[in-house]
Amino acid sequence: MRWLWIDQFTEFESGRRASAVKCVSLVEEYIDGYFVGHPVMTPSFVIEGFAQMGGLLIGQLSDFRANLVLAKVSRSRFNEYARPGDQLRYEVQLESYQPDGGLVSAKSYLGDRLQGEAELTFAQVSRDMVDLDFFEPAEFLRMLRVFRLFDVGVDANGQPLAIPAHLLAADEAAQAK
């Protein structure tokens, strides 16, 4: 199973907010493993989608060079389960940011209904603690493209978000092999 918990970004405003969709399908392995015979997407997987969006929202501010980890989930509240056939809309807002991490608020909607919400704290793992990249850069860029982040992303001036040069270089090097 691939650990990608959004299907695509629909909006991405650097340093501010992002929205994405996640379509829930019966083909996903986890879906009826929790309550057998009653397939639902448990809230922890929605939170994983929030975390992936929030991590990218914060990571983009360092051109995706920072190693970020989800440090904490607070004020999590879910009103209903998403089920196969549903399309969830995630809205994530950057509330506070500094070089060692950030705080985002996130909401999930089913149509106009608030399905769930949470706040997530991220911490940057310094190179003094772990001197390695959490992601291989070319693979990471592939993931961002799969998420269509650069198709919809805009910078602080509303201009299309450029792919960071170090990721493009890694991608070219990987393709040349």
Binding site: Q98, G101, A123
Partner: peptide, 13 residues
């Protein structure tokens, strides 16, 4: 300890 990071972000905001 991890809460302190969270608290700092909330106070900043």
């Amino acid at each position: 300890s991890i809460d302190f990071l969270d608290i700092v972000f909330r106070l900043e905001k």
